[in-house]
């Protein structure tokens, strides 16, 4: 009874949802119930059930297979975009916090400027110049993520720099870079993981949005956003075309957000019982 109440419900539900979609994405690499791109006009617009678990689209393609393959696109785009944001943003934030003054000012001004370009605007610019593709979507969302991580890292690091254990490390002769890596980074890792899951979910939403308006993944790469775009004219006729990919996006994003919330509670040392 107490075990049930103690269970971190957001973490459990979130992890389960994310696991489902992640495994769907991985399985789609080797197996899908039907051919992802295979059209079968005789079986078009089938409602869910009856040989096709989630129905078929107007070309008779299997929705479940497209969904699984689309998960793979969504997840890889989001992971790479968050990766870009973290790999560039975190060191920038650490450097800004460690060297107050000129460098800090420069990094933060650049950050403010980057915030003036919403992901969609970056995507429009990139697409206008290089043409639409999944790679360009990754770059657009990734650029948008850099200032998010830089700002978070800097803020958390700055408050740590005033803590006495950092002063103690400085008295022990450790340099700023070493302290950043040894003391600051492990103590903000929680925050970064939690923000990572949030940006991951935003990345999935952004990818879906870009693909929906044709700025993201291009045919024949399967994508949830494009499944929705394709369904638009048929939504009155076959609502499942919109419901299936829509619910997939919602559940994945919900799962990631719950996972983030759950991790925040689980990783927060203030909430952990460990005193003896």
């Amino acid at each position: 009874m107490t075990g049930l109440r103690r269970l971190n419900w957001p973490l459990a539900i979130g992890a389960a949802l994310v696991a489902i979609f992640a495994s769907a994405a991985v399985i789609s690499l080797v197996w899908t119930p039907h051919d992802v791109t295979g059209m079968n006009i005789s079986a078009r617009l089938k409602i869910p059930g009856d040989g096709y678990l989630l129905g078929t689209d107007h070309f008779g393609r299997d929705m479940l297979s497209m969904l699984m393959a689309g998960a793979q696109t969504s997840i890889s785009v989001a992971i790479l975009a968050v990766g870009i944001g973290m790999v560039l943003g975190v060191p920038l934030g650490l450097a800004a916090a460690a060297n107050r003054g000129g460098l800090d000012e420069m990094i933060m001004r650049a950050n403010d400027l980057a915030f003036a370009f919403p992901a969609l605007v970056i995507a429009i610019l990139i697409t206008a110049v290089f043409g639409p593709s999944a790679v360009n979507a990754i770059i657009a969302i990734g650029i948008f993520n850099i200032p998010v991580f830089a700002r978070l890292t800097r803020g958390a690091a700055l408050s740590l720099w005033t803590r006495e254990f950092i002063l103690a490390a400085r008295v022990s002769g450790k340099g700023r870079t070493r302290i950043s890596v040894e003391h600051i980074l492990p103590n903000i890792a929680n925050l970064l993981v939690v923000q990572g899951t949030i940006q991951f979910s935003l990345g999935i939403l952004a990818e879906a949005g870009l693909s929906y308006v044709g700025l993201g993944a291009q045919p024949p790469v399967p994508s949830w956003g494009r499944m929705l775009a394709d369904s638009q004219t048929l939504v009155g006729l076959a609502p499942h075309l919109a419901l299936v990919p829509g619910l997939a996006i919602i559940l994945t994003v919900l799962g990631l957000n719950l996972l983030g919330d759950g991790l925040r509670d689980a990783l927060d040392p203030k909430l952990r019982v460990g005193r003896t």
């Binding site: 803590r163 006495e164 254990f165 002063l167 103690a168 490390a169 008295v171 022990s172 002769g173 450790k174 003391h183 492990p186 103590n187 040392p269």
Partner: peptide, 28 residues
């Protein structure tokens, strides 16, 4: 020259064991 600060709660990295905390000045 070494130092002891005021706050007994803020002056240690919460993620390290006491042995590592106490031996940090060996870095010098």
């Amino acid at each position: 020259v070494q130092v002891v600060f005021q706050d007994p709660y803020g002056s240690f990295n919460p993620r390290h064991k006491v042995s590592r905390l106490v031996s940090e000045p060996f870095h010098l």
